[in-house]
Nucleic acid binder design. Structure first.
Lengths: 129, 129
DNA sequence: CAGGATCCGGCTGGATACTG
DNA sequence: CAGTATCCAGCCGGATCCTG
């Protein structure tokens, strides 16, 4: 629910014990999650190594890529395979669950590509128009 | 891009000057935005007054409802109508643009309702399984 | 190579008090 | 009634340094 904090001021979040949509948005809403899913989806069914993933996600730091992938792996959206060589090679790939999420995200992307310009215009109009 | 800050450390976000999807996620990812859109969509085509909206969004504070609505209005997703009585009455309604966003969000909601349980299970499994 | 640990600034959002 | 203003805690995420 995002309305974390367990006891929340007085009441408030007892009404919807767990809203799945908010739980989902709390994940894909973080800065790099959706880009990681997209990047892995574009590569599928191939797996992608950490460094390559980093290269394909301009601007992400080593830390945030690591954090993002760990989170996705915990969620069962991404599978992680370690090749115990020296130096180690770690590869990632979307799971089936991850692929189905990507399909759902594609809808949002389409909407964004079609309509974000309108939102921008609305903002400019509000600024002074 | 979220990678705000215009000049970003060195380079990094120059590669995708404006990713519409991130811009969108930066909006609907905020805590109350999607719930507000959903609540207004459920009421459509009727408009909803501030206080009533507040009642229908358990847990939201006056401030956050105000901030959320102002943002949605600026984005052209919600229209705002003021009835200049005393005390004033202000009503909100989804615009067409807002309705189309709601349609896109519905896809995410469906996915969330169908799959969040799997994600929860994956997390439990990771915790100790 | 992959990623853990640490430090820290900035933004998000909650509580509270005050207005037209 | 419908906000706005202020204060402040907590979390997100960036930079940097270190390791198997």
């Amino acid at each position: 629910m995002t309305t974390r904090g367990a006891r929340a001021a007085g009441r408030g979040d007892l009404f919807d014990p767990q809203c799945p949509t908010r739980q989902l948005l709390d994940r894909i809403g973080t800065k790099w999650t959706s880009m990681a899913v997209k990047t892995l989806a574009d590569a599928a069914p191939d797996e992608v190594r950490f460094a390559e993933l980093r290269r394909r996600m301009p601007g992400i730091s080593q830390k945030m890529l690591s954090v993002t992938l760990r989170s996705l792996t915990r969620d069962g959206l991404v599978s992680r395979r370690v090749d115990p060589t020296v130096p180690p090679q770690v590869s990632y790939r979307l799971t089936e669950l991850g692929s189905s999420l990507e399909a759902a995200l594609a809808g949002l992307r389409t909407w964004a590509e079609e309509h974000m310009a309108e939102i921008d215009r609305a903002n400019e109009a509000a600024d002074e128009g």
